[in-house]
Write a protein that binds this DNA or RNA. Structure first.
Lengths: 114, 114
DNA sequence: TATCATGCCTTGTGTCGCAAGGTATCTGTC
DNA sequence: GACAGATACCTTGCGACACAAGGCATGATA
């Protein structure tokens, strides 16, 4: 798990927006989706994830709706707004160019399509 | 330039160690090396870089020596200690695996050697 | 009945990037 | 001689945020 707090910090926003855009919709599910989609390498702590969702909602990038699960539990479902969708593309591009720049300095492989 | 503070935060340590390991040795030079080696994409502000160097020195990963430049100005030259060299390999590996995990989630190209 | 998984949340602490400021020297140029 | 610009180091104050650690409530399972 991403024990170093500085790492997740740089990518949490695009990750969360991407996962919501891809179908994950409520906090608890998103937290597990982060782990699954990263092959168990990334962990979004609850104390990190929930405030992040609230920030994104406050900025108008997410919209939340309360629904009941089939078992009757309350869930807070999130969807991307139009701004959220646009913002996802921005931060994704930002992250890609950033990580390529870092890889260049570190002498790491170039990113290429397989 | 890396206007988003959360980005540089995740990679400053490996970057600085790598540049010093690669020959850059004093603060002012390192700050320019960050820009040059990243093709102008990354910027390490002085208020970011100098405290970072002090932290690394305090942790025993860097050792500093004052020297005079050919023009007579004082420069604080840094070199990696043994611990610093080992730590560089650790954080480099950490960053590579992290960035690959993020790219996986974002559906970005796999990292491959060109 | 108790425990676990689900599902939401908050507060306190510490770290750290950045803006903005400071000091000093050397090399020009006017 | 004066002044600007590059070089070279540094610090303080502010704000943002990850994480640990806690809390609360419900449904399923044993």
């Amino acid at each position: 798990m991403a024990q170093n707090p500085d790492l997740i910090r740089s990518a949490l926003e695009p990750i969360v927006l991407e996962l919501i855009s891809g179908g994950a919709s409520y906090g608890y599910e998103i937290s597990r989706a982060v782990q699954q989609s990263s092959g168990g390498q990334l962990l979004a702590q609850e104390g990190t994830l929930y405030p992040a969702l609230h920030r994104l909602e406050k900025r108008g990038l997410l919209k939340a709706v309360w629904k009941k699960s089939p078992e009757g539990r309350d869930r807070k479902h999130y969807v991307l707004t139009g701004d959220g969708r646009r913002h996802l593309e921005e931060v994704r591009a930002e992250w890609v160019s950033f990580s390529q720049a870092v890889n260049k300095i570190l002498g790491v492989a170039h990113a290429q399509f397989a």
